[in-house]
Design a protein around this nucleic acid. Structure first.
Length: 154
DNA sequence: GCCAACGTTGGC
DNA sequence: GCCAACGTTGGC
């Protein structure tokens, strides 16, 4: 899951403990949250538009998907007047903090590793803009090792 | 259904 | 600030 650290960083998640991942307004990204994520799934927390960009830590899916309330809030910048409360268009999950990496796994490092054992990892590919995207299990483990992380994959 | 115009993401 | 890579919108 990508977030701009100026808006919401891994430190913000650590401080708050938990966060509703609202504002996703891309159908594919929504589908991953609504249809593919399950409570307990681990998440790579990626800092986009950062210097440098990269994976900053790990979070965990804390809830089933539910309709994104910001879509119904006219005062929200994520307001979508076309989203019908009876058939919500936008969904979110809440995520909880697991750990902040001792060192960021930079996009440069991901791209370098993508030439070998991270081959095919989506986030390392050019033009890959989806803010929520799937990570293969062995890729996830490899990123954790690059971060010298303690988190175990279940 | 096609596609041009436009807007956004996000790396650099 | 630039621009590649999309996704969305709307005219036809």
């Amino acid at each position: 899951m990508k977030s701009e650290p100026d808006v919401f960083s891994i430190d913000d998640l650590e401080r708050k403990g938990r966060e509703a991942w609202d504002g996703v307004r891309n159908f594919q990204a929504r589908n991953f949250m609504r249809d593919e994520m399950a409570v307990g799934d681990l998440v790579l927390f990626y800092h986009s538009n950062a210097t440098p960009p990269g994976v900053a830590g790990v979070a965990r899916v804390a809830t089933e998907a539910y309709p994104d309330p910001s879509a119904f809030d006219p005062d929200s910048k994520y307001y979508d007047p076309d989203s019908d409360p009876d058939a919500p268009r936008w969904w979110l999950v809440e995520v909880e903090f697991v750990e902040k990496f001792a060192e960021l796994v930079s996009l440069d490092a991901l791209k370098a590793a993508a030439k070998t054992d991270l081959a095919g990892m989506l986030v390392a590919r050019r033009g890959q803009r989806l803010s929520v995207q799937p990570v293969e299990k062995d890729h996830f483990g490899r990123v954790l090792r690059m971060a010298k992380a303690k988190t175990r994959i279940r």
